[in-house]
Design a protein around this nucleic acid. Structure first.
Lengths: 359, 359
DNA sequence: TTGAAAGCGCTAACAC
DNA sequence: GTGTTAGCGCTTTCAA
């Protein structure tokens, strides 16, 4: 019964306010928006009428039909939220997006590519959209959105028509990390990859798997390493988390039965800092010291409460800036301005988790 | 120039599809929605016309005006996203909300109480709203939303008219933790509190501060402890993070100059697991062992990659369920059903971070 | 089974 | 400065 309260008290309309104030609806509208010439006196009368009726301002639904804009920017995330936001790098990026869109008066609609939410991508009232680290079904999603004539921006996705790309030098940066290890004298390395396909499963990296992979970021980072080390022990993690990194680390370190087997990699490149921390943990649990017995490199450069005493050697990417650029790009598209496709560069940070391999 | 592409190709309308198919708009509408009797043949004709025009389906903006529903549920977060989502407990809750709303075909609009985004709360096209851990300006926000006749659900907020409450036994659970410590024999304890006011600042807990506090969760948890220990060393953290916990832990442990001062608390209750982990870290850095020299209790029961060897003694709260309940409640309100206000219960988990105080 | 008409609430043009 | 008119694109009566 209580719930009917909302039904009993219909929202007053601009028209009703105008009527009470004794002015035309268009005048009342102007009085509210301040977008045209209205006499002080009329304005006051309208505002008084609005107050009396407890009018909350123009109905956003009607406004958005009339104006052809809803003030909403969609953000499509591949995973379930709890998977995506477990990694601070994604949150940082989202925060960057929110910075830009928020100050332009737009709000963010969170959408995932998973199951039920899929249909919403086709039908939510949005003015533009940002695709984040999407992969598997990216092209399907893009096709739907293209049909909706929706301005699209994708962060770290493969090039697609009608989609503005915000890039990161994943390949080059990873090559940098690999070269760093090579220069230290490492010859046998392992790589812990971000998920390659969706749904996320863990397992040893194989050529076939890599060939069918859809995760653009992971692929580029793998290619970067391969440019330096033709061969390496690859293992695909089930996500970007310390746990997943730990599991992957164990797999790589124990691939030959014992960590003392001489074929064991002396260095591991992890595709995210969380994964790297997991690898370090796995190594320590197996009695290996970092960087004495094993060098570890990460990727992202998040400020890592969890790294303990280690200062992770990693590639610092400008996550917030990436988000900002994406936000700015959609807004530009909406404003009819030519948006700028930006490519960001990661910076190598030499920490204390890499060293020359032990004899 | 490129950006004008979207302007040149206007979205086709249902009317244009209908015209091409040689039927009335209303019939075309039915053919799409399947919500009425349409002959197979007509339907096919309409679909063919739609395909030819590359029609992407009804415009959501027009739909939402006509139907009075936008299919959007707002979620108001107090902090900047990166602060709120740094704590996995919040992400879990959001995930619970998304579960429910997503499968009902609604999407989530993310709003913050901070600066620019504030105005959006007053003007975004939403059907209902969920307030999450909001505090400071809760009442202002609620007033605006009430005027909009917006169904409101609040998670762990103080009781307010027209707002359905989803609660957690913060007070009772905290009392449980305190009693646990009392039973172990602790007499001098410290409490690391979640932020009390906004913007978040850290500092020693004072009676005045507590009196003007707006963070409902923090207050309840403090009250729970006070029911058991009339006095304790309180310190308010600047957020729910390991770093903030570490800083707060240091403050409390060094309040009397040295950790060896006999007035030093022998146990610390932290209002979140992240804070607790930070406290443990601070203790260890100061040469104290946990639980030997210091007992630590957390709150939340997140699965903690970062706890290292410790199995944190904590209160496990059903975060995802809390989110689900909130989601279900808004949806019920929208469906005209009486929503159920739910109160959740936390479960005490005895880990290995609490023990009898050392002599 | 289909069509015609009305209007959701607002605002941009245009007249006065 | 203010009022009038005309829709934005869709869906829901109601009548045929």
């Amino acid at each position: 019964m209580d719930s009917e309260a909302s039904e009993k008290a219909p929202r007053p309309t601009l028209a009703s306010v105008a009527a009470l104030a004794g002015v035309s609806p268009s005048t009342a509208s102007l009085a509210f928006s301040g977008a045209g010439p209205v006499s002080e006196e009329t304005k006051e009368r309208v505002l008084a009428a609005a107050a009396k009726l407890d009018y909350a301002g123009p109905d956003p639904r009607a406004q958005s039909l009339r104006r052809g804009r809803s003030g909403i920017i969609g953000v499509v995330i591949e995973d379930r939220l709890r998977d995506a936001f477990r990694d601070p790098i994604n949150v940082a990026m989202l925060d960057g997006i929110a910075d830009e869109t928020g100050s332009a008066g737009a709000s963010l609609l969170l959408l995932t590519e998973t199951g039920d939410d899929r249909a919403n991508i086709a039908s939510a009232p949005m003015d533009g959209i940002i695709l984040v680290g999407c992969s598997t079904s990216l092209e399907e999603v893009v096709a739907v959105l293209r049909q909706r004539r929706m301005p699209m921006v994708a962060i770290e996705a493969k090039e697609l028509d009608d989609v503005l790309a915000i890039g990161l030098d994943n390949r080059e940066a990873s090559a940098l990390a690999a070269r760093h290890l090579a220069e230290l004298g490492h010859e046998r390395i392992g790589v812990v990859s971000l998920p390659l396909t969706s749904p996320h499963v863990a397992g040893p990296l194989t050529a076939e798997w890599e060939a069918t992979a859809t995760g653009s970021t992971a692929i580029q980072r793998l290619l970067g390493v391969r440019g330096v080390f033709a061969e390496f022990e690859g293992f695909v993690a089930a996500g970007s988390s310390i746990d997943a990194g730990r599991a992957a680390g164990r797999e790589i370190l124990l691939r030959f039965g014992s960590v003392h087997d001489e074929r064991r990699p002396t260095a591991i490149i992890a595709q995210s800092d969380l994964l790297a921390i997991g690898v370090i943990r796995a190594a320590e649990e197996l009695g290996l010291s970092v960087p004495g017995d094993l060098s570890v490199v990460g990727f992202d450069g998040i400020r890592i409460d969890e790294a303990g005493p280690h200062d992770l050697t990693t590639l610092v990417q400008p996550a917030v800036e990436k988000g900002r650029a994406a936000g700015r790009a959609v807004l530009d598209m909406l404003a009819g301005k030519a948006p700028t496709a930006v490519d960001f560069t990661s910076v190598f940070h030499q920490g204390n988790t890499t060293a020359v391999p032990s004899a």
